[in-house]
């Protein structure tokens, strides 16, 4: 029905490879389902997120143009966009993630790093919390995690914030 040349692989154009991640901060788009949505394209000032031919296509990133600015993180209604910087320190990477829970952590706080299933996989230090009018109440939290976990940690638990019963 539709022409889907960019979608041979669900991860190609959305998940940066190790070689790209070693070159500096870049976006990670965990958006693998064709739903009608395109605000990420409008948010990108680098021209790195290609225009959508069809609203239902997956976003496609030009990782040579993406500079990891993170302007797309808080505009994604699916909270599916992250920025990973594996050049932060020798052993530590930074993961920037969208966060819509209270209390917000503060820089310097130590929080639990959670993987995609909500299991605690490390402790993480909060580096920065972005929350301006542009973020429209979706804060972007920068956390420092072991480099090996940069592609695993996708959520945090701050103190007594809400959680499911089955968390690891």
């Amino acid at each position: 029905m539709r022409d889907k040349p960019c979608q041979e692989s669900r991860t190609h154009g959305r998940i940066p490879g190790a070689e790209r991640r070693a070159r500096g901060p870049c976006v990670v788009m965990e958006c693998f389902e064709d739903i009608p949505c395109d605000p990420c394209h409008d948010a990108c000032r680098q021209g790195a997120i290609r225009p959508f031919d069809d609203l239902n296509h997956l976003p496609e990133v030009d990782f040579d143009k993406c500079n990891g600015c993170g302007a797309c993180i808080s505009v994604c209604p699916g909270l599916a966009i992250f920025v990973v910087d594996e050049t932060w320190k020798d052993d530590l990477a930074v993961v920037r993630l969208p966060y819509e829970f209270l209390p917000l952590p503060a820089p310097g706080d130590v929080v639990a790093g959670l993987d995609r299933s909500g299991r605690r996989c490390c402790t993480a230090k909060v580096i920065r919390v972005e929350k301006t009018k542009r973020h429209d109440r979706t804060a972007v939290v920068w956390i420092e995690v072991p480099k090996a976990l940069s592609m695993e940690v996708r959520h945090i638990r701050v103190g007594g914030s809400a959680r499911g019963l089955h968390e690891g």
Partner: peptide, 15 residues
């Protein structure tokens, strides 16, 4: 529902 909505609650630990 949308996969991205499912992921939001799964990573918060909800099965």
């Amino acid at each position: 529902g949308y996969d991205v909505h499912a992921r939001k609650i799964q990573r918060a630990g909800v099965p």
